[in-house]
Design a protein around this nucleic acid. Structure first.
Lengths: 157, 157
DNA sequence: TAATAAAAAGAATTTTATTCAGCAAACAAA
DNA sequence: TTTGTTTGCTGAATAAAATTCTTTTTATTA
């Protein structure tokens, strides 16, 4: 399942990360390669799960999801901790689920329309999940940056 | 600058969020509309900043960015707090910067290759930013979910 | 070095993007 | 209501891109 990325692959990743809707011909032009060759590389990158998905980033305020919060969730270790994470991930308002070090268990990222919706999510969804002992909520007042663009190196050794 | 989204817009957003590389003809087919009409809508959504960007999601492990952490950053309130957020956002390893409630100041999301790189980032970049008083780091052991897909409603009132 | 495999180029064909004219519904103002 | 205006759609024409396949080149390795 190993796959070594060369400079061309990394360039492709960089361009696709910046603009996932760039067309194949444009990619090929920028790389100085034939479109067919580039297409093959892209398909291979998808197949090897280097390129995981292409997402449009939607403005949350435009669809009335003005509230962002992070919630630390302490989990009963005796209950299946693995399972708890999966259940959290199934909640649509939950955008991210991270298993964290320390005794907190999980940290999740949640978007809701407002604080009322957050409270009802916690009451109706979170608290019903097996193994959830307690929660601590961090309220985001303002987001300064939120592109999840990774640093793509020039080359990998 | 207001813009009310109808059901068709919301369908477009949903499809684009799921697969940003869907082509315009396919969109049109699914919507039962002419490609030209759909194209116009997409352009308008971009122009109105409802569609903010299109990102390829790259597998972090494939490019050797195995470590994920969140850092709480306490900021001297007397120094320009606004400014501090911007400076944090400029660090490429910093994927997200959130201004949070309470006395912590900011919470940032950081990806590095390993813990060494994290430490050096904190020493070389974070600590040099004006106004940063202290930091508290949360280490992510494992990520269960990390698509930042919002809930797109059927309709908006 | 010859054989084999992998990657790229190039060409042909299908599909898509893009532009634009024309039409109809919605809207606003008189 | 009437008129003029705007908005959003269709449909057609053309340019551009995607996709497939064959050939060629480059790398790999036995």
């Amino acid at each position: 399942m190993e796959y070594k990325l060369d400079e061309i692959d990394l360039k492709i990743l960089r361009m696709m990360q910046d603009n996932a809707r760039i067309n194949n011909s444009e990619l090929a032009r920028e790389l100085g390669m034939a479109p067919s060759a580039v297409l093959e590389r892209v398909k291979k990158l998808e197949q090897k799960e280097v390129l995981l998905a292409y997402h449009a980033r939607v403005n949350p305020t435009a669809i009335d999801q003005k509230m962002l919060s992070f919630i630390f969730i302490k989990v009963d270790e005796i209950i299946g901790d693995e399972e708890t994470g999966k259940l959290l991930a199934e909640i649509p308002e939950v955008l991210e689920v991270h298993d964290i070090a320390g005794d907190d268990g999980y940290m999740i990222k949640v978007r809701t329309s407002d604080s009322l919706a957050l409270v009802s999510l916690m009451r109706n969804s979170l608290s019903k999940i097996q193994g959830v002992i307690s929660t601590r909520t961090i309220i985001v007042l303002q987001t300064v940056k939120e592109d999840n663009k990774l640093i793509i190196p020039e080359k990998l050794d």
